[in-house]
Amino acid sequence: MTAPRGRTGRPPLTEARKTEIRREIARAAVDLFVSQGVTSTTGEQIGRAVGLSARTVWRYFPSKESCVTPLFSEGIHAIAAFLREWPSGQSLQEAVDRWLVAGTGIAGGPDRSTVGALVRLTRTEPGLRAVWLQTYDEAEPAFARALAERAGLPADDLRVTIRAAMFNAALRAAVEHYAWREQYALRGDHAQGERTAAETELEATLRQALAVASEGVK
């Protein structure tokens, strides 16, 4: 009689570790895209930057452009969380200010310079542009659910759908506006000081965009 075989090999990765790996791949991909362009970047190079094989990279992402998805998604998730936590009866300005003071940050997700560099690439790289727009397309239902929950309405209510679309469009326009402003701020002899001003502008731009989109949302 033979003894039952035990499980061999490495233990399975936790979901937290998988998320961490996806983020490491995303950051490596952005660094390579910015430094040498999307066309010149290969899956082998992305994997090598984080100590993985290209085969492992393709297990996490279907294409090199899609490797950046986690960095796009983190900001979207932060905004959805903000909308869910926005107390009924509190103005949007008050909610945003409290969130920023708490240190959460309205942009959430990766650092702003990474976001700026990545969003700028979406203007010249069709593959990245497709990923960027797809991220916002998938975000809209999440925004709708958050707004519906806040208003006590069904998620498929037309008013909720329209408001979510307004928030979605306003946020994308604000981030793109910031990214291109940051590009110009990084030029010149006073790049560091101007960049700080541009980063401050991201919060102001998002505040303004959300305020416009929130008109009529009580």
Rank of each mutant, 00 (worst) to 15 (best):
Q134K: 13
L118D: 08
E138K: 10
E138C: 12
V115F: 07
Y136N: 02
G127A: 09
T124S: 10
V115K: 04
R123H: 13
D111M: 03
G116Q: 05
R120D: 10
E140R: 05
A130V: 07
L118T: 06
L121E: 11
S113G: 15
V119I: 09
R129G: 13
E125C: 09
R120L: 07
V131W: 04
Y136L: 12
T122E: 08
P141I: 00
R129C: 11
W132E: 05
S113C: 11
D111E: 13
L121M: 14
W132A: 08
P126M: 04
D137Y: 11
V131K: 05
D111Y: 09
Y136S: 05
R120K: 11
T135E: 02
T124L: 05
D137V: 11
G127D: 02
R129H: 13
A117D: 13
T114Y: 04
R112H: 15
E125I: 09
L118W: 05
V131F: 13
R123Q: 14
L133T: 13
S113T: 15
P141Y: 02
V115G: 13
A139N: 03
L121V: 04
L133F: 07
L118E: 05
Q134F: 08
T122S: 05
L133C: 07
L133R: 14
A130K: 10
L133W: 05
P110S: 13
R123F: 15
R129F: 11
A130F: 01
T122N: 00
G127W: 10
A130M: 06
A139H: 00
T122V: 02
L118R: 06
T124R: 13
L118M: 12
T122H: 03
T124Y: 14
V115M: 11
R112A: 06
A130Q: 06
A139M: 00
R120V: 01
P126C: 02
Q134G: 14
R123I: 06
T135G: 12
L133M: 08
A139P: 01
Y136R: 09
P110F: 09
E140Q: 12
P126D: 01
